[in-house]
Computed example of a mutant assay.
Amino acid sequence: MLTYAVHGQGSALVTERLILLADVPLDEASELWSSVREYDASFESVLSALAGRGIGQLRDFALLEFVPGAQGAVSTALRGRATIELDGDTYSGEGVTTWSEASADRVTCVTLRLDEAPRDTPSLPLNRGVVQTSELVWGHEPLEQFSLTNTSETDRSALFRNAPALRAMTETNPEEQTIVRRTVPQWMLRFSSGKVVGIGDRVVIGRRPTPIVDNGEKLETLLSPQREVSANHAVLRGLEDGVEIIDLGSKNGTVVQPEGSEIALLRGGSSTVLRAGDTVDFGDGNVAECVRASHP
């Protein structure tokens, strides 16, 4: 699991096998993301893009690659004050003209850091994308997490803006962690394929859904031969008046068609409430209507 601290002015870029933490503003990081092209990005292409403006303008950075086909093997590049911690051993980029490179095997825990975040700084999960942060951790659970149920609307909006690949938030104190209460579904998503998904407790839906909180959630798999549906695409939660749907940073977004209103596209942690008669399109023909559940 990869998490980032909601702290600092650096930027992180994450693909399926690369993690870059750089001392650059978010807009510059987004340009860099486009230049290396997510699916074609390689260790060398990212280094070339970083050095594209000349060594004299090269910013501090930490780059890590999970070596394909070698479990636990990583390659790293470091410059300036950036550090990478591999299973407790810290490597620094201080004192080099360009950058220093290293490799390691059988790595289980990684921390990339520009500046150390305060202990009470919230951490959020990140699958893939660009986000503002000064610290990323891979391989173990973050020390501090937040609960969506105990967060104000203002705080929720701020957290969504900082979480383009948002997956979940749990409380900081494990002893006070919210326990999922199993409820009878009051709502359903009725798909055009005939599939029906009951929505009572939280439901994670996607191509290969996985749990996003420790205390359990319902998982619903959608067939997606063209891979238009993301692995963890969205999370659903039954409310009194409808179904809350939160896009989990899906690649193609989630298309919502409210009954009698204009189509809306949810992306990067944005959310809405589905009412009876509204439809939602997850991609690859997975279109569903929100309806009230009927019980005997």
Rank of each mutant, 00 (worst) to 15 (best):
Q186F: 06
E176K: 11
T172V: 08
G194E: 02
N162G: 03
K195D: 14
S193G: 01
G206W: 01
D201R: 12
Q186C: 04
P209Q: 07
G194N: 07
M188F: 07
P174E: 11
A168V: 04
Q186K: 14
I212T: 14
V203I: 09
V180M: 08
A163M: 00
N173L: 06
M188R: 14
V180S: 12
P211S: 12
R167T: 03
R161D: 11
G198K: 04
R190I: 06
D214S: 07
A163L: 00
R190L: 10
R190E: 15
R181S: 12
K195N: 15
S192M: 06
T170H: 03
P164K: 03
R182G: 09
T172A: 12
P209L: 03
R202T: 09
T210Q: 13
R208H: 11
Q186W: 02
T178K: 12
V203Q: 08
A168F: 05
R207Y: 01
N162T: 01
R202K: 07
T183N: 13
T183V: 13
R167N: 08
E176Q: 11
I199C: 10
D214I: 01
V213I: 09
I199L: 10
R208I: 03
V184C: 13
R161H: 07
P164Y: 00
V203P: 08
I212H: 13
P185F: 02
P211F: 09
R207N: 03
R208E: 08
R167L: 04
A163H: 00
T172P: 10
R167C: 02
A168Y: 08
T170F: 02
N173I: 04
I205F: 06
A168H: 12
E171S: 09
V203L: 06
E175D: 11
Q177N: 09
R208P: 04
E176W: 06
Q186V: 05
M188E: 13
Q177E: 15
R208N: 10
A168W: 02
V180P: 10
D214T: 06
D201T: 11
L166D: 00
G198H: 03
G200V: 04
F191A: 00
L189M: 01
Q177C: 06
A168K: 04
T178C: 09
D201V: 09
I212N: 13
A168R: 02
F160G: 02
V184T: 14
R190V: 13
R208A: 05
R182T: 13
T172G: 11
R207C: 01
M169D: 08
V196Y: 06
I179R: 14
V180W: 05
G194M: 05
P174H: 02
G194A: 03
V184W: 11
R161G: 03
P174C: 04
T178D: 15
R182E: 12
F191Q: 00
W187M: 02
V196K: 13
E176G: 09
I199M: 13
P209A: 04
P164W: 00
A163T: 00
I199N: 00
V184R: 15
V204C: 07
V196E: 14
V213D: 15
S192Q: 13
E171D: 12
V213Q: 15
N162K: 07
T210I: 09
E175L: 07
